[in-house]
Design a protein around this nucleic acid. Structure first.
Lengths: 334, 334
DNA sequence: CCGGCGCGTTGGAACGTTTCAAATCGTGGG
DNA sequence: CCCACGATTTGAAACGTTCCAACGCGCCGG
């Protein structure tokens, strides 16, 4: 900057003004300084700027697993919001490892980021409290963290209800819920929602098939269990706790010569990219992933702005949406 | 740090020494300072450290599309290598948008990162040259950028050869190549490799079905084209330029009542997560994604270390590997 | 008893910005 | 002709570290 000032024949302060408050500087000087910047290929040193101004213009998102498209979509939403506010985003990936998560949190404290978005590995609230104690705003993404944190989540109970209601409205009365282990909050919530919907319809019945995991192989296994039932006892529809289960189930049904949705209608959850590309395009419950990220970032910016006066923590809960595809098409023969 | 110094009854310099060269400080003082740090919850201000030391201990990876598992795996490799060297990683996502890419490059220049790993959107070599002109090492990932840049790639010609050879060895003599548009370097290279393998076997023939894109829908369309051929003219095997095509093709074949691999053996490319979970698990050409990232990061660190004396740019080319699954199982009746 | 050596420690000068009070310069009103 | 005033510009003090020359001090060899 010193060189730029010398070349333009002005003082350091003026160069700084051209960069930060161009309207304070006369047109001639401004142009002269800009020309000098251009000629020297000057690039502002953000580090020094941060040190002096106390603002880093950077926020961070600590995701649970970047390999999961859910989180990459959320991250995109975060980036969009941050970009709009002129902030850079540090993307960190804890890979479900508490140690790595702590490592990143330490690093981010040292970097003095403006704020942290995080999907924590487990009950990390005390660690997060400490971070916030340092004056760094924290927003929890896709997890509830109580009234002391801003958070952004999607209502899994509502999602379960949505899926089951859709099946009930299509005339199904015996519905299987496939998912588990039920110790996973989301699997349990989706079941709760489904139960609620089924309970509201007289004569409707929900059969729970708990699985050991939420993957394709378990979906196939569930398919075998269903196919093994005599026709009269077999559900006519299945609601799977995620799309992997649903895809596995779908594959096995097709393989066993059963028709989807004729013999079994299927609803998945998450609306992953492959849901629409499956052999029979899959009806699925979709979460507003991009919006989730954007909202979380906006909440963070609000909290940062409020930091002076008292800040009211908000828990935003989004509603999932049902995306109807062929796997639950109405049966032509009722 | 001032507070820590005061509390421990030492000077600023000593605190700094405890942090950076603990062996220069006597045990008693060291412990006293550490206790003070603990009590005050002091966290070093990385920004100031960077400003003074001139080193940011941060590198960046500008990926083409974080939604693509390929790049997230590469990113993990990068992170592992960086972590081992005690560096933080800025993850940026250009989403195939040159403007966004330039925005990030500007930002990274301002941040004075130690180095940049990038999968560029297009011929961005002049922009990258400018970045390097500022003294920031650059390594190109998954693209060749000529002898003036370090780069890390995977040999697509070899991959195509590998796939075709596998099919030839299984006895196939009429093989379809499905992929395109051939203006995409990778689709063209894989075809080149396949041609090479087929040319080496007398009596073997390669049928090229160029597609408009590399997605599931195009794969299905190719399936229809193949199924429409009379049995005698229909290839007995297909090599698809990526797994999406292969999955679409597989779905359509199964749907049309053809057997895989009995009527048509299929090889995909990329070995995406779903390849192994398909209705018929897919044989696929796998790229060492994690290794790609790790190597790129290591190359970058080398270049950064060499910066003083002349640096020799290296182009590392990895070999793909074939992962054999059921979609090319040997036919029981030859 | 003195000079020199090493170990610990100290003080202060950078690093490259931003920020702000003060200086400068025309300018129009009185 | 003087003065207050707005618009520009300047100069210097931060920001929180690291780095280095210099310092104090106990000890050893002469």
């Amino acid at each position: 900057m010193k060189d730029v000032a010398a070349r333009a024949g002005v003082s350091l302060g003026t160069v700084s003004n051209v960069l930060n408050k161009p309207d304070r500087v006369s047109v001639q000087t401004r142009d002269r300084v800009r020309a000098a910047i251009e000629q020297l290929g000057f690039v502002r040193n953000e580090t020094a700027r941060q040190l002096r101004s106390g603002h880093s213009r950077t926020l961070a998102y600590v995701a649970l697993d970047s390999g999961n498209p859910f989180f990459t979509d959320v991250a995109e939403g975060v980036q969009d919001a941050a970009e709009a506010a002129g902030l850079a985003v540090f993307l960190c990936n804890s890979r479900e490892d508490g140690g790595r998560q702590d490592f990143y949190l330490d690093m981010l404290e040292q970097q003095r980021v403006e704020g942290i978005l995080i999907t924590p590995t487990d009950n990390a609230t005390d660690r997060l409290d400490r971070v916030r104690g340092r004056g760094i705003p924290v927003v929890v993404v896709d997890r509830d963290a109580g009234p002391d944190f801003c958070s952004v989540t999607v209502d899994d109970v509502a999602g379960g209800e949505l899926a089951a209601t859709h099946l009930l409205e299509a005339g199904h009365r015996k519905i299987a819920y496939i998912g588990g282990p039920l110790t996973i909050g989301q699997a349990a919530d989706r079941l709760t929602g489904a139960r609620k919907a089924v309970a509201a319809v007289p004569g409707a019945e929900l059969v729970v098939l708990e699985t050991a995991a939420l993957n394709v192989a378990e979906g196939r296994r569930a398919g075998e269990r269903l196919a093994g039932l005599p026709g009269s006892r077999r559900p006519t529809a299945a609601f799977c706790a995620n799309d992997l289960l649903a895809l596995g189930l779908l594959q096995r049904m097709v393989r066993l010569g059963l028709d989807v949705p004729g013999d079994l209608a299927i609803v998945g959850y998450d609306d992953i990219e492959f849901a629409g590309a499956a052999a029979v395009p899959l009806t699925s419950v979709s979460q507003p992933r991009h919006l989730l990220g954007r909202t979380a970032a906006e909440l963070l910016l609000t909290e940062a702005a409020d930091s002076a006066e008292g800040h009211e923590h908000r828990q935003v809960v989004f509603s999932p949406e049902l995306v109807v595809r062929a796997s639950t098409a109405l049966r032509t023969t009722p």
